[in-house]
Design a binder for these strands. Structure first.
Length: 105
DNA sequence: AAAATGACGGTGT
DNA sequence: TACACCGCCATTT
C-alpha cells in the first residue's frame, strides 16, 4: 500500500520537538489535507502506540486537550506535557499556551 | 459502494 | 467563557 494519510501524519508528528505542540489542523495540513483535522484525531486514537509517535503533543486549535487513548486519559496527557516543559495558561491549567509552545505555525 | 464514526475547527448564541 | 451546530475528512464497517 502507498503511504496512507495516517503514515504521513505520524511522520510529521515525529518532527515535533519536545517541549512543543501542534494542533490537529496543523498536522492535517502537514500531511497534505488542511481540513482533515478530524481524520487526524482518528489516526491518533487507533495508534496510541510507540514512543516514536508523540501523540501527547497534539492539541486542539484553542490549546485545549481533547483525548488520549493511553492510561489516565487527558489527565495523563497533560502531565506528560508539563514534564516536557510545555507552557500552560496559568489561569486555565487545561489549556496549552500556543503562543509560546506551538511548533511552527 | 454507501453509511457511520470521531482525540477537529469555525461560527453562532 | 461555555455550549450547541454544522461542515470536513480519512478510516472502518
Amino acid at each position: 500500500m502507498p503511504k496512507s494519510f495516517r503514515e504521513k501524519v505520524y511522520e510529521a508528528l515525529r518532527t515535533v520537538p519536545k517541549g512543543k505542540v501542534v494542533t490537529y489542523g496543523q498536522l492535517a495540513k502537514m500531511a497534505g489535507s488542511p481540513k482533515a483535522a478530524r481524520a487526524v484525531g482518528m489516526c491518533m486514537r487507533t495508534n496510541p502506540d510507540a514512543p516514536a509517535t508523540p501523540c501527547h503533543r497534539v492539541v486542539a486549535a484553542d490549546g485545549s486537550l481533547h483525548g488520549y487513548s493511553g492510561a489516565g486519559g487527558v489527565a495523563q496527557k497533560r502531565e506528560m506535557l508539563v514534564e516536557e516543559e510545555v507552557r500552560f495558561i496559568l489561569q486555565k491549567s487545561d489549556r496549552v499556551d500556543l503562543e509560546v509552545s506551538r511548533y511552527q505555525n
